[in-house]
Simulated assay, not measured.
Amino acid sequence: MCQYKKYYEFCLQLKCLRLHFQCELQQPISNLPWIRCIKFYALSVINIIVFVPSIYVVLNFDYIGYFWYSLGAVIINRYQCLLLLLYVDLLGYHAERLDERLQALHSYRQLGTQTILDIQFEQMCSLDYLLSLKRAYMELYRLFELYNSLFGWSIVCIFVVMFLDSIINIYWSLLVLIKVYQFGFIFTTCSTFVPLLILLFTFCHCGEYCKRQHMLIGSRVRGLACAAQCQAVPPPLAYNAILAEFAMQVEQDALTISAVGFMDINYNLLMSIFTAMVTYLIVLMQFGSLYA
């Protein structure tokens, strides 16, 4: 609510980018593919179903703890994470569409002058179309930067909460397995950290997907530059200049999901989280053995 203006600007720029794809690039942007929609529906359902074992344990084992007090905060935290995941998936989807346009242009460039009388060839290989692709990438990069500035602190807080909750619940599960607590509490701990690990993996996967799309876009632009130099009839100097500027722009302005500069959301972060979890669990087990 405090950043409503930025959020409105983000949604407006996302809509403008979609219109840019449809009007200037002749790239229809439909809704998310049904496979991705099913993924988000499944995550939403899982995050509701997992509360059933915890409620069962609370009602049948005479254990309250902080469950009822934290239930509302946990639900808000997880569905805020799903909202951020949805926007990351939308950004990756638009980056994928831009890569498809660049791939089509690269295919036309490889044809050379064989279809020079083709209207589609002249349109795709024109300077205006290259400028449209460059503007689309610029708008997409601004969207990534706006997303990082708008949701960066939320991502940091969500990852910290998920990290701590996962460690604590895995530790409690180990205590249940060594019969410190009743076995029924294993349902509460597993129903807590399993969806957290799924959300962590999905978030890092979406960030890694955006990173790979940026790498593909960079390879397409470099391929266009090589194809322009190898043609029998080289394009105009203005075209080569814009292409070189485009390649430099892609090299400097990366499409990455970043938590206000603290960390980039990708598989490297996921491995770092798992490594830290194992380290802290070993430390907790060692301290627990001292008081046993």
Rank of each mutant, 00 (worst) to 15 (best):
K6Y: 04
R18T: 12
H20F: 09
F21A: 09
E24T: 07
A42F: 15
P53L: 00
S54F: 05
Y56K: 00
Y56Q: 00
V58M: 10
L59V: 15
Y66V: 03
N77A: 15
Y79D: 03
C81S: 15
C81E: 14
H94T: 06
L102G: 06
R109G: 02
Q110C: 04
T113I: 15
Q114W: 02
I116T: 14
I116W: 10
F121A: 12
Q123L: 06
M124S: 06
S126Y: 03
D128G: 02
E139D: 08
Y141S: 05
L143I: 07
L150R: 00
G152P: 06
V161P: 00
S166V: 06
I167E: 10
W172C: 04
W172R: 12
I178A: 01
Y181I: 04
G184N: 05
T188W: 07
T189K: 12
L200D: 15
E208P: 01
K211Y: 04
K211D: 11
Q213H: 07
H214V: 00
S219D: 13
R222G: 01
G223D: 05
Q231L: 15
A241G: 00
E245Y: 07
E251M: 09
Q252T: 07
T256A: 14
S258L: 13
A259Y: 08
V260F: 10
V260C: 10
I265L: 15
L269W: 03
F274Y: 12
V278I: 11
I282R: 01
L284A: 08
M285Y: 09
Q286P: 00
